[in-house]
């Protein structure tokens, strides 16, 4: 198995605005990675930089420990069809589906045919006249059909109804099962997509807030609720569990914090009349997005 994608000191600025700030990350090969975070945290920019659609201000990206520059053999290992992908105005769906296989040596015609059928994509329709959901479906067809070693999916479900999203998840697993490869998917439907993910990266304000295997990330997210004074005292005594978000309702408060708790910590929380519950990955992503805490 190959090494994957290494991001080394990656910084991207537009004028005075820093979108990504000195990122160091590794996307291990052969896994499905979730790239999570609020809008504007740099997810799409990171994917653009990794696929050389744009250039970094500083830093570099390695594919299997090599800078790929203008090497066409390396470039054809990538597929990144954007959620707002531009197509030639004259292209029909069938034109795009006719051309795409030429770009990928491992093109999966059977999956393509099945997906076009399942998404009910109209081959004779001009791409620019497709609905939002149909454009997403076309991007999914290209991404899964490519069987590219490094496939990027940027919010691939936009405009898809729940049934079509289910189809996408099912086909993603099927395609990945047939040929494991590195898939990096950004999504806001975190809990819906979580069962597919093996690793998660959470970005916040252009920095890595968390990178962990899914199970570890899910174990991190906890909520503590109880009397405000008890809760505040407990948090003061346990600085390893910072308050990421806080809701106060009368004399009681709820905070999202980072777990897991040791047996002693659980016991002290119980003594303080605090209720400890696990929260979803979505809750953790939202909490990290609302704080400046970095777990990585």
């Amino acid at each position: 198995m190959t090494a994957g994608i290494s991001v080394i000191g990656l910084t991207k600025t537009y004028g005075d605005h820093t979108v990504l700030d000195d990122l160091h990350l590794t996307f291990a090969a052969g896994k499905i990675h979730g790239l999570l975070g609020a809008n504007g945290t740099g997810k799409t920019t990171l994917m653009s930089l990794m696929s050389r659609h744009t250039f970094p201000t500083r830093g570099s990206v390695l594919l299997d420990d090599r800078e790929f520059g203008e090497d066409p053999r390396q470039a054809q290992r990538l597929c990144f069809v954007r959620e707002n992908q531009l197509y030639n105005d004259a292209f029909k769906v069938r034109d795009v589906l006719r051309i795409a296989p030429d770009f990928y040596p491992k093109w999966d015609a059977a999956t393509t045919t099945r997906l076009v059928d399942r998404f009910r994509l109209p081959p004779a329709t001009v791409v620019k006249k497709l609905s939002r959901g149909q454009r997403s479906a076309l991007a999914i067809v290209l991404a899964l059909g490519s069987r590219a070693d490094f496939t990027f999916l940027d919010e691939p479900y936009l405009g898809l109804d729940p049934g079509a999203r289910e189809t996408f998840y099912e086909e993603l697993i099927r395609s990945y099962g047939a040929q494991p490869r590195t898939i990096i998917m950004s999504t806001h439907l975190v809990d819906e997509a979580a069962p597919l993910l093996e690793e998660v990266v959470v970005l916040n304000q252009g920095r890595v807030a968390l990178q962990a295997p899914l199970e570890e990330a899910e174990a991190l997210a906890l909520t503590l609720s109880g009397p405000t004074t008890s809760l505040d005292r407990w948090l003061q005594e346990h600085p390893d569990h910072p308050s990421l978000t806080r809701r106060t309702l009368g004399p009681t408060a709820t905070v999202t914090t980072l777990g897991p708790l040791s047996d002693a910590e659980s016991a002290s929380a119980s003594q303080a009349q605090l209720r400890v519950t696990s929260t979803s990955l979505q809750g953790l992503v939202a909490a990290l997005g609302n704080s400046n805490h970095e777990v990585a």
Binding site: A75, F80, V81, Y87, D89, A100
Partner: peptide
Amino acid sequence: VFAATRNFALALALGATRRS
């Protein structure tokens, strides 16, 4: 113009290099 903008975007999406 269309080749340089729309086709360029799709070519890069599908793993072509700028030179090719």
